[in-house]
Amino acid sequence: MKIKIVVGTALLGLILFHQVSAQQPVPSTHKNGTSYPSRFGFGRLATTAEIALWDIDVRPDGKGLPAGQGDVLKGKVIYTSKCMACHGNNDTDLSKIKLPAPVLVSDTLAKSRPKAIGNYWPYATTLFDYIRRTMPYNQPGSLTDNEVYSITAYLLYANKIIKQNQLLNAKTLPGIVMPAKKLFIMDDRKGGPEVR
């Protein structure tokens, strides 16, 4: 009786093992011949709350953008108090001053300098993602979502990409086409003898 159960369990295990492993994109036998289980059973399921706490990324299609909104005028006020000390006042010529952080405003022509948001950033969503995750430098991650929308709006406006009255939110931000997007190509090196 006992043996039957053990054999039965083993068979069931084998069947389950094969069903699971059939779905895996890699073989479950290691190079040296030892067979890997389809799962080791280490680790634990992550809760929805745990994922939400860390899942702060934003994709170009808008996936990950939070609720809330911002505008250019609010953004300019926040920029002045929280960003300008490092990134400079975008209204005056700072070409001769060495700033602690990159200049953020350029025109939209590909060959113009400096390389900044207007002529070198291919996606507007990247602004939101980056500012929210790591700015301001001395207080990383301290801005509210609305503040991030507003700073993003101000920077897009200062780079002549949106109008002063445009509101930014999860719906409008992914729709903004950046002037530099058309310049970007995927890696076209192919390996092999050719120098590219």
């Binding site: 994709r59 170009p60 950033w121 291919p122 996606y123 993602d129 980056y130």
Partner: peptide, 11 residues
């Protein structure tokens, strides 16, 4: 199913 286009891989 698609890349995120983060700051470090674009600008």
């Amino acid at each position: 199913d698609e890349p995120y286009m983060t700051r470090e891989e674009t600008s």
